[in-house]
């Protein structure tokens, strides 16, 4: 079973939730940190890294001896990543989406593909939690191939928790695609509400089941609750604005470890989500 934690707005508590849910669950669990631009879950879990590998994407390489400068590669490329000039063909690796079109259309077999590193994956173990994260190389434009690589991991777990990046665009879509359920974390403020609506729109387009967790729930206004109510969206849990949580978070601690009184909120939450998803999966089977 795959459950993603996502948010729309950044800094609402995705990583806190993902880490603490993994910490309290009794299932064999894996946590995949898919925020490859700014991965943070390892700060809290402090996993022992046992394996590391490079992630690459395919880019074209042009053999000038075979190339007849026909220009077909430049015609098919939608991303201006390969540009035929009068005397040679230029490749812009960062712009390439790895579709392979240039290689397929080249009539002279002058284009081959080579791998270009965009980041690395580290995996290991943190207590009972199997852990993996992706780290995008600084300066790389495209995070989705990196996220896809993290999601390819096949951990020995019955429950996989995915910590998604913020936003509602390509990286988040890649992170939540194919999951069984998504927990949307928000805060009860106008910014939180606005970005929640966008995230809900995204999940509905993708036809993914979801529920909402309201973090720092005693701040702000009633907008998020009213919106959820009007749109029949289930509020799964509320976590209060507690300065001790903020301080514990700042030091990179797991809340359920440093403030055990919060364990019950997270335990109930993960049990609820797992039970709901289990029923859905069984009904489908």
């Amino acid at each position: 079973m795959k459950i993603a934690v996502a948010s729309g707005k950044g800094g609402t508590g995705k990583t806190t939730l993902a880490v603490n849910l993994a910490y309290v669950t009794s299932h064999a669990v894996a946590l995949l940190d898919c925020d490859v631009e700014e991965p943070n879950a390892h700060i809290f879990l402090k996993p022992e890294i046992r394996e590391q590998h490079s992630v690459g994407v395919l880019i074209p390489e042009v053999n000038p001896e075979k190339c007849t400068l026909c220009g077909k590669c430049g015609e098919i490329c939608q991303f201006n990543a390969i540009v035929p000039l009068p005397k040679k063909v230029l490749v812009y690796p960062e712009l390439c989406h790895s579709c392979g079109g240039c290689m397929l259309v080249c009539p002279d077999q002058a284009v081959t593909e080579i791998s270009r590193e965009i980041g690395k994956i580290e995996q290991g173990q943190a207590g009972h939690i199997w852990f993996a994260h992706g780290i995008l190389n600084v300066g790389e434009i495209m995070s989705p191939p990196m996220i896809k690589a993290v999601k390819h991991a096949v951990p020995p777990a019955e429950l996989i928790i995915i910590d998604a990046p913020p936003g509602t665009s390509c990286p988040v879509i890649e992170a939540v695609r194919g999951v069984d359920y998504t927990i949307l974390v928000t805060e009860p403020t106008p910014f939180g509400l606005h970005d929640l609506k966008l995230a809900v729109g995204m999940l509905r387009t993708l036809e993914i089941n979801f529920g909402v967790v309201i973090n720092r729930s005693d701040l702000g206004d009633q907008g998020v609750r009213e919106y959820c109510d009007e749109n029949s969206i289930r509020i799964l849990a509320e976590i209060p604005d507690d300065r001790r949580i903020a301080e514990s978070y700042s030091r990179g601690e797991i809340i359920c470890e440093s403030l055990p009184e919060y364990q019950s909120i997270f335990k109930t939450l993960i049990q609820t989500v797992v039970a709901k998803t289990d029923n859905k999966l069984k009904a489908r089977a």
């Binding site: 925020d35 631009e37 995008l136 434009i141 995070s143 390509c170 700042s250």
Partner: peptide
């Protein structure tokens, strides 16, 4: 947020960047 495509598109060629962080 982040360091990927939209961030790179926002900062390339700018005069100054202000990074807002928090003590965590």
């Amino acid at each position: 947020p982040g360091i990927g495509c939209p961030v790179i598109a926002s900062i390339t060629g700018a005069d100054q960047v202000l990074i807002i962080t928090e003590p965590t």
